[in-house]
Write a protein that binds this DNA or RNA. Structure first.
Lengths: 340, 340
DNA sequence: CTGAAAGCGCTAACAC
DNA sequence: GTGTTAGCGCTTTCAG
């Protein structure tokens, strides 16, 4: 078979031969140029360019035990929060010379663990994770079995290195805003509460600030399935004691709540106020613009990577002491109005 | 230093020793079990389990010249279209035993090429790409320099293997819908037309079907920057000859157009009709729900991976002959109404 | 400043 | 069915 090797990639050996030096020198010319004389360095670089040389990543990884790949485990990319975060991760990883390998779990706890195992097998140098519940997570146990740095994004837990915002406090801001607008009958809407520690924290913040305001929260509205979420919410929007405000555990749910309200013939914010949480880019461009907590989603991703990279260069594991609480901001938006 | 190797990962050698067989047998037990007797297979698996053995990916890659990693190049994850597509890619890649490495280009053509180069260096087995313009793309030339399979997603070009929908035809559906509602003064809104072959195709479809309807298209409204898009659109919405319908090149722009209309005091769809394109999940849940072309975004990702995987198992390169045109559907939505 | 040699962990001929 | 051997492409002592 002719031309079998026509497109075979040049190896360090080929460069060495072509430049008339040893493979070791070629390696040095790239990885420790200061150890090589200017002349040979030029020789090597020319040969490399001529032959389109690219060092073979797996050979290097095998030898150095460093893959320069970071693993990422996220619930889904269908929620823009995580897509925005991943974009941040991708950016800062690329800037630091790392590639990323993302996996999505679709909120399945078992899948979280499988993703971690698969990434460990792939030999990633570190992990950024968004887990359902940091306090009891098989995935995190799996992570800790190996000596590899990891950082949690969005999760907030004293036993782990986390990059997050203060969800409980942020939620208080929303409730206070609504109370200030005269709302008294306020209900919270969330997905499956038990499936997300973030939702739980936001719920805790909701309860606490309702109490502080001397108000009784209306019964929690749980909408476990996307397909039926709008109807589920709608069902809670009738009767004389219907809520005048809905506090949603995230922006996606808020968007569905707005739709539910409209289907009930309620205008937002005139007849009912609705708040979100997350600050997805789209939410701010909607009409009405979402009243929500804007988290720095891309920044959460970027900072997670930075923590990892720091740990990697120092050959130390990040611990809960390196956790970061990033500032959020309240977007008044247009989906809240005076109670009537 | 004691315990230096306490957490070192077990190698195939360790398993061999522990099971009392040769490394080759261990390898076979995993990769070609039928070549190994039941008894030794059990022996090996027990040893592997005991020592938490995970085959080292880079060693395997180095040896077999197959990384089982697919590279992905996308404009951004901030547009849900691509996030949904990446989710599809991630799913089917995982199902087929592949990991993925995504890179984002933020629509920069130079960055596209850099991403490809970096993925090639990383040794990916194949590439899924969404490029700005398939007809003149340095990234694609870079790809073709190496003998690795690649597939374009969303791009539609006769010289490349593509997974896409018929953008031009789909756009006609939208225009016909508007014309059927009595609209005569219709304008198209898009980002930078020259920066995207998809926008160009949609624009061509717009022009063609306007012509077919015997209508003169209003001047194209280009909104190059996200930050000023809403104002840019707003500026085109006054005067007696203002458009009664806006055809937007994608859903994100449609959302901004809706906002622009509202800021001008125009109600959608009563005073003005607006169409999108893409079918992002969110768009269908908005109020008003977007009138748009729904592309099977996750499916586009999945099928791209399938094409790649087929090529990989057959050791053949996919060519333009394997291109796939996936069905789209028209979502009437609520953002279009009768012209008035 | 440069080269020789060993080996990272794995798989695939080839023997037996 | 199983073992032996060689080598994928690279980096890193160790000599010189």
């Amino acid at each position: 078979m002719p031309h079998r090797h026509r497109h075979a990639r040049a190896s360090i050996h080929d460069i060495a031969q072509s430049a008339g030096v040893s493979p070791a020198t070629v390696s040095r010319a790239f990885n420790a140029p200061e150890l090589v004389s200017e002349a040979t360095r030029a020789l090597v670089h020319h040969a490399a360019q001529r032959l389109h040389y690219r060092p073979n990543a797996s050979a290097r990884t095998l030898r150095t035990q460093r893959s320069h790949v970071l693993g990422v485990v996220l619930p889904t990319l269908t929620n823009p929060v995580f897509a925005e975060c991943l974009e941040g991760i991708a950016q800062s990883a690329a800037a630091a010379g790392y590639a990323i390998m993302p996996h999505t779990t679709d909120y399945h706890v078992a899948s979280e663990q499988a993703c971690v195992a698969s990434l460990q097998a792939a030999g990633v140098d570190g992990l950024v994770l968004v887990v359902s519940d940091a306090s009891r997570s098989p995935a995190l146990e799996q992570v800790r079995r190996e000596r590899r740095p990891y950082v949690l994004a969005y999760n907030q837990h004293p036993a782990h290195p986390c990059v997050s915002v203060e969800g409980e406090k942020a939620m208080a801001t929303l409730v206070e805003h609504l109370v200030g607008l005269g709302h008294r009958r306020i209900a919270m809407v969330c997905g499956q509460l038990h499936a997300s520690d973030r939702a739980q924290q936001r719920h805790a913040g909701f309860l606490a600030s309702m109490k502080a305001a001397g108000l009784d929260p209306l019964p929690l509205i749980e909408v476990p399935f996307v397909a039926t979420a709008i109807e589920d919410i709608e069902r809670n929007l009738s009767g004389p004691q219907r809520p005048t405000a809905l506090v949603c555990s995230n922006d996606l749910i808020a968007i569905r709540a707005i739709r539910a309200a409209h289907q009930r013939g309620l205008s937002v914010p005139r007849d009912i106020s609705i708040t979100g949480f997350d600050g997805i880019g789209l939410g701010l461009e909607l009409t009405p613009a979402l009243s929500t907590i804007v988290q720095p989603n891309a920044e959460i991703g970027r900072r997670s990577v930075e923590l990892l990279r720091d740990a990697l260069v120092r050959a130390t594991l990040p611990d809960s002491g390196s956790s970061l609480l990033l500032p959020y901001r309240f977007n008044a938006g247009e989906s809240c109005g005076l109670a009537r």
